[in-house]
């Protein structure tokens, strides 16, 4: 009897399940169609285009791997922008994560004014990139900008020329990008911090753990899934740096702030090398994909999903 009941129960469940699956797909369909048409298809077409030469008007020519070979053998600008982008990512990603964590920890206290500071740190995220870039342009002005005025008062006789120097333009862009990127990461970290059960800290404190030990033994491990998400997102967005370079420096001076995505844009829409631009875009995609894959593979060594 119980067996029959059990069978019936299973049958009933699978029918519901099937209906639910159908419903899920039903709800997903509009999004899936959108994804196929507006994301998957263009990405796939871009892959095909990357093996061709096409200037939009003349017939498309199949050139095999020529575009990929050209990148490394016949385009000094590409080597330059690749270098710039790698340096940019290597500096801004750790900075954006560490600083965001520090800010999040500071603002996770129940103190007066934290709401104000949370808003303040999040402001750059919701501000328009163009407006932000214009203000920073002024801050970095070599002669009259507030930054160099401060440095000058502090006794720096010959402060950096920032955006008008090949040496300092990229660091200047990094500073803006870090400032801009902290807010979003901070909010994610704050959410993660508030998800850590308070009894863990209570228990640790009763056992006599110092706040420093609590941070290393409780906060960081418990926060690791959040950190992982932040790391992946920040890495991807850093590789795609474009708007700041366009508005603040136009990639200059002398390509000092030119980036991969700006190079893609210029090749496609200014030099009409659609195939070559697609090839660089795919190269960037593969690089980002490989790094993300490595991060996912590597997470078992430090990311803790237990509890």
């Amino acid at each position: 009897m119980s067996l029959v009941n059990g069978k019936q129960a299973r049958k009933r469940r699978s029918a519901t399940e099937r209906r639910e699956i159908m419903a899920a797909y039903g709800f997903l369909t509009p999004n899936l169609i959108g994804f196929l048409i507006f994301t998957f298809l263009p990405v796939f077409v871009a892959l095909l285009l990357s093996f061709t030469e096409w200037d939009l008007l003349r017939p498309i020519q199949w050139v095999g791997l020529a575009n990929y070979i050209r990148m490394f053998t016949n385009d000094p600008t590409f080597i330059k922008v690749l270098k710039n982008t790698v340096i940019f990512v290597a500096v801004t990603v750790p900075a954006r994560i560490v600083l965001a964590l520090v800010v999040a920890l500071a603002l996770n206290q129940k103190l007066f004014g934290t709401t104000f500071f949370r808003t303040a740190f999040f402001m750059p995220v919701v501000s328009s990139s163009v407006a932000v870039a214009l203000v920073w342009q002024w801050i970095f002005h070599a002669d009259f900008g507030p930054l160099n005025n401060i440095l000058w008062t502090l006794g720096v006789g010959n402060p950096p020329r920032w955006l008008t120097s090949t040496q300092w333009a990229l660091p200047a862009l990094m500073i803006v990008s870090i400032w801009q990127g902290i807010g979003m990461n901070m909010v994610i970290f704050l959410a993660g911090l508030q998800g850590i059960p308070a009894q863990l800290y209570e228990a640790a404190r009763i056992d006599g753990a110092t706040p420093w030990k609590c941070f290393w033994k409780i906060t960081l491990p418990m926060l690791s899934p959040t950190t992982f998400l932040v790391l992946v997102m920040t890495t991807i967005s850093s590789f795609q740096i474009f708007d700041l370079a366009v508005i603040m420096t136009e990639g200059g001076p002398a390509n000092a702030t030119n980036t991969i995505v700006y190079h893609i844009y210029r090749n496609a829409f200014q030099f009409f090398r659609m195939g070559y631009a697609a090839a660089i875009a795919w190269f960037l995609f593969i690089v980002i994909f490989a790094i993300t894959l490595f991060q996912f593979r590597n997470q078992k060594n430090w990311v803790n999903y237990d509890l």
């Binding site: 120097s165 090949t166 001076p253 002398a254 390509n255 200014q270 030099f271």
Partner: peptide
């Protein structure tokens, strides 16, 4: 010319114009 100008000539002149 547009490509030659923006990939070769302009970056070179940038260095000249910023005095490097």
């Amino acid at each position: 010319y547009v490509e030659l100008n923006s990939t070769v000539i302009t970056p070179a002149l940038d260095l000249l114009f910023i005095g490097e």
